[in-house]
Simulated scan of single mutants.
Amino acid sequence: MSVTRRTMLGAIATSPLWLQPAWAQPNNLKISHQFPGGSVAEGDFRDRLCRMFAADVERRTHGGLKFSIYPGSALSQANAQFPALRKGSLDMALVPLSYAGAELPEVNIGLMPGLVTSYEQGYAWKNAEVGKELTRILADNGIVIVSWIWQAGGVASRSKAIVDPEDVRGLKVRGGSPEMDLILNAAGANVVSGPSDEIYAGMRTGTMDAALTSSTSLISFRLQEVSKSLTTGRGGAYWFMFEPLMMSKTVFDRLSKEQQAAIMAVGADLEGFARKMAQADDAAVAAVYQRAGARVVDLNSATLKKWQDIARDTAWKDYGERNANCANLLALAEKTIT
């Protein structure tokens, strides 16, 4: 039987997709991250946040946008996520921004030791000059920040607790960013590189003696199983990491204004959840390690200042000399220090 033009037009006119407004037509977007998977209610809060984001955006767009979550580097290796976002081959990812420092040195401001020392200061960046400039730089490089997420961090060690800078001398230590590596080198450590999902294997085999990472990763990657000491960030930290939920600008730009608005609104709404969960993990990590028999210590203001002084003379100086954007971001960030 031949299909007439009238038959085709009739079929299109009665199609459910044809009857939907353009902004409500479904797109299935992929969200990648390197952290352990769970559910909306349980597990690593970064995975939970991605699932909450997906559910809320789907609801607000009446099913026009749908999402698939890929935890545990199932879709993309940790260090490959940022370049994939820039090229538009990956839709969304929740990833430590400093992982992209090799290709875009400006982003290392997101794990600059001693520059951010509280959640209040970190979250204030979003609406401060430094946050607006960082947002502009990322947009110019193909990235949209959807949710601002900050995490304090601590140090897991296979032997002694890492408190003062001299405690790292001679040890193989993972810092998490080139700038963190600079202050570890200055303090006498042998720097080991790698994403957070490789720390467990490194500490188990002895290729790492100690590792700095977020409180949440200290828990989620079960580092208490390979640690004898923990230095927490609950009383103050020189290690604060910016770990946003990001979207490819190529993907974002092809969405309708309504879909874009839904994505940005839900992303902003979830920042309160992220902050609350990160702070809860800062407190919970101590109990997790104590139950495993590890020694748990905290930092005080005098110790924080020692690390900050080293950072100012090494990491801050090196970063500020990279290019004009870096120098400007550093100057704007220093304005937020109280």
Rank of each mutant, 00 (worst) to 15 (best):
G206K: 09
A186C: 11
A187T: 01
A210P: 12
T207K: 13
L212Q: 02
A187H: 07
V191P: 00
K228V: 02
T205A: 12
D197C: 12
T213E: 09
L212R: 01
S227A: 10
M208L: 15
G233K: 05
I219A: 01
S193L: 12
M208N: 08
F221E: 00
Y200F: 15
S229T: 11
T213W: 03
M203T: 06
Q224E: 06
D197P: 07
M203C: 02
A187R: 10
A186M: 13
E198L: 15
T231W: 02
N185H: 14
T205P: 02
T216R: 04
S214P: 01
N185S: 12
T231I: 13
E198A: 15
A189C: 11
A211H: 03
D197V: 11
L230S: 04
G233C: 08
P195L: 07
T216Y: 00
R204Q: 13
A187I: 01
F221I: 05
G233F: 02
D209E: 12
S217Y: 00
G233Q: 01
E225S: 01
L223K: 04
N185G: 10
S227D: 04
L223F: 04
G194H: 03
S217F: 01
V192H: 06
E225L: 08
K228A: 00
R222A: 14
D209Y: 07
L223V: 07
L230T: 06
N185M: 13
I219V: 09
Y200E: 07
T232D: 06
A201M: 15
G188L: 11
D209K: 10
S227P: 08
G233W: 05
Y200N: 05
A201W: 15
N185K: 14
I199A: 00
S217G: 10
L223S: 02
E198P: 00
S214A: 15
A187W: 09
S227L: 01
S220N: 13
A186Y: 08
G194N: 07
D197T: 12
G206D: 13
Q224W: 11
L212I: 09
G188M: 10
G188D: 02
A211S: 06
A186V: 08
K228Q: 12
T207G: 07
F221W: 02
L223G: 05
P195A: 07
S229Q: 07
I199F: 04
S193T: 15
D197L: 12
G206E: 13
S196C: 13
R222H: 15
S215L: 03
T216G: 09
L212Y: 01
S214R: 02
F221Y: 00
V191R: 07
E198F: 14
T213M: 06
G233D: 07
P195V: 10
M208K: 07
N185Q: 15
F221Q: 09
T213N: 10
A211K: 02
L223R: 00
A187Q: 05
N190W: 11
Q224I: 01
L212E: 05
N190A: 12
A210N: 11
G206H: 11
A186R: 12
V191I: 11
V191E: 05
R222P: 06
S227Q: 06
A210C: 14
T232V: 05
A189T: 01
I219N: 03
G202V: 09
S214D: 08
L230F: 11
A189Q: 05
V226H: 07
I199V: 14
V192M: 12
I219L: 09
S220H: 00
R222G: 10
S215P: 04
S227E: 03
